[in-house]
Design a protein around this nucleic acid. Structure first.
Lengths: 323, 323
DNA sequence: CGCATAAATACTCATTTCGAGTATAAGGAG
DNA sequence: CTCCTTATACTCGAAATGAGTATTTATGCG
């Protein structure tokens, strides 16, 4: 594989985008920017520039300059390059558009710096992902449309495949919603034409606007879906939640933050036991400026856990299936 | 972040590379190609071309055409773009070189098709990653040099940081080798100047050639490290090993394949129990053309498990630390 | 044939982990 | 003082897990 060195200089544009996430006990949010008037919002993003040593450094600088947000943890998610889902629909034809998505975590949601940025609860974009109050009712409608889509498949094989994907992602007709499969669910909705981004013709009226979630420009909702999925997966084996917490916090704040990220409710005593016996936190000595009942101890992250445990994280208790 | 649309067309080259992995009970191997005579080998790779709809499709076609290998599972790993670790050192200055790494799994290692490809045991490139026969002796020498490097750090803070990284990756001075951290270990060796790729001046003689592993061209060993790490992590929650197994196999073959991938030995009865009660396999009915003792049942993967279990995989038994 | 050898396969056992539920403590508001 | 709210502490049983041992069923050799 070492031939036409010429083809190498096909024109390529590279866009770096970041899903910048903050979280409070009320729920996680993401920083969005609005570009054209009226168009859907998007993630902070910009073209790759030559001057930076690494991609991550470039992204970091760019976002920090533009939004006034200091980024904490930053990680690369995925490089998208589908020809027909270009990041920039205004790009020239025959020009490959790559889009490299990043996840960034920040401790506090600054009230949106100088730019036109604003913080948005992430479930506004993914209403079907929030099961904290139980299974959201809009899922019934989504499922019905998804099943129709599956049955409308061309051959029997394709039909079967679609049904299986539905079972594996939306848990249609089966047990077990798996919270990490955010991207898979979004992609299914995209393929089924059930999100505005998938419908080229903008005049198409969505059959059920409330259930589709707020769209974003270009492939930004796809990147956000990747980010949510990654974060949900990663809290289980890395103490990454603490990148989102203030320096000191209570058990309840921690639990509610995790619940917000994972989109599910957790069993309080067990969560507490888990966090304690994993050695993820230590007491600061101080007590919380209480919020209702008995004052709570203030905790902080215990970095030593990184050396003690192979995969220190918050395995989320999954209810046992009834035997 | 929406300004200079001009800067957008900085010249960028994009190289797609694939770590193509096959595995037998004897151990995993990777397909390498040799380009220049005498230079180190590399992964199959080539420039991104405009004609393909998706990046993955492009990679797939390209590799299949060139090596005669049908690829099974393919997944994107990471996009590297450090300016000073360019994939192609021959590239023009001021031209950003992106390198998108992929992991591909194949069922059988074809004896290297038409091209100059050859299959290589992957531990030839990462001798410190193979602990199937216990801790490899060369680790003593590596550790000593790594500790020297840590102590040679500029400030006390940097020294501490380096020591912590050593503890977290090579388990220096602590418990717990974590098999997934392949990339982190390689990067540490790179930073410490302990792999040939890191030494620009090729005339430098390595202090301990045997311990450094076979180098590869450009950033290909970095991609392979990412691939190994990803694979080791993923077998724990996805039934991905079966992409590497023949259609029918015995328990022992499966176990040895997993041991090869993870680089550790497993407890036979427990491995068996795990695989059984997870419902990962079913009997084919046939028996193996035996290999020594009592004939073994032949098994096959049981795809239904994908719908039944949230994260069907092979949690590798980690010995309990002595209380 | 009978026995050593090599695997495969089947159990046992003591912990540990984990889901679930209940009980008690310590504040504030009225 | 009482009630409400949240924090914190315990209990219990089921399932998972690490470690070890025993039995079966082949082969091959004397």
């Amino acid at each position: 594989m070492s031939q036409p060195r010429a083809a190498r200089h096909d024109r390529v544009t590279v866009e770096l985008s970041a899903a910048i996430v903050a979280a409070s006990p009320a729920g996680p949010s993401v920083l969005t920017v609005r570009r054209r008037h009226e168009g859907p919002s998007g993630l902070p993003s910009g073209p790759l520039e030559a001057e930076h040593r690494t991609l991550e450094a470039g992204l970091r600088r760019r976002v920090e300059d533009q939004t006034g947000q200091q980024l904490g943890h930053v990680e690369q998610l995925y490089t998208f390059g589908d020809r027909d889902r270009a990041a920039d629909p205004g790009g020239e034809a025959g020009c490959r558009a790559l889009s490299i998505g990043y996840l960034a975590l920040v401790r506090e949601a600054r009230p949106a710096g100088s730019a036109e940025g604003e913080w948005h609860g992430w479930y506004g974009h993914f209403p079907w992902e929030d099961r904290r109050e139980g299974r959201p009712p809009l899922l019934d409608r989504l499922e019905r449309r998804l099943l129709d889509w599956a049955e409308a498949a061309a051959g029997a094989a394709e039909r079967r495949l679609r049904r299986e994907r539905l079972a594996a992602t939306f848990a249609v007709g089966g047990e077990g919603w798996i919270e990490d499969r955010v991207l898979e669910r979004y992609e299914l909705l995209y393929e089924a034409g059930m999100v505005p981004e998938a419908r080229r013709d903008e005049s198409d009226t969505p059959p059920d606007p409330g259930a589709e979630g707020l769209p974003m420009m270009a492939d930004h909702r796809r990147i956000l879906a990747t980010a949510i999925g990654r974060l949900r997966g990663k809290i289980k084996y890395r103490p990454i939640v603490f990148e989102l917490m203030p320096p000191a916090f209570t058990f309840l704040q921690l639990q509610q933050t995790v619940e917000g990220l994972a989109g599910i409710r957790l069993h309080k005593p067990n969560f507490r036991r888990l966090v304690e016996q994993q050695g993820l936190v230590e007491e600061t000595g101080a007590m919380s400026p209480e919020t209702g009942g008995r004052p709570a101890r203030l905790l902080r992250f215990r970095p030593e856990v990184l050396l003690e445990r192979p995969a220190p994280g918050l395995r989320l208790p999954r209810p046992r299936p009834p035997a």
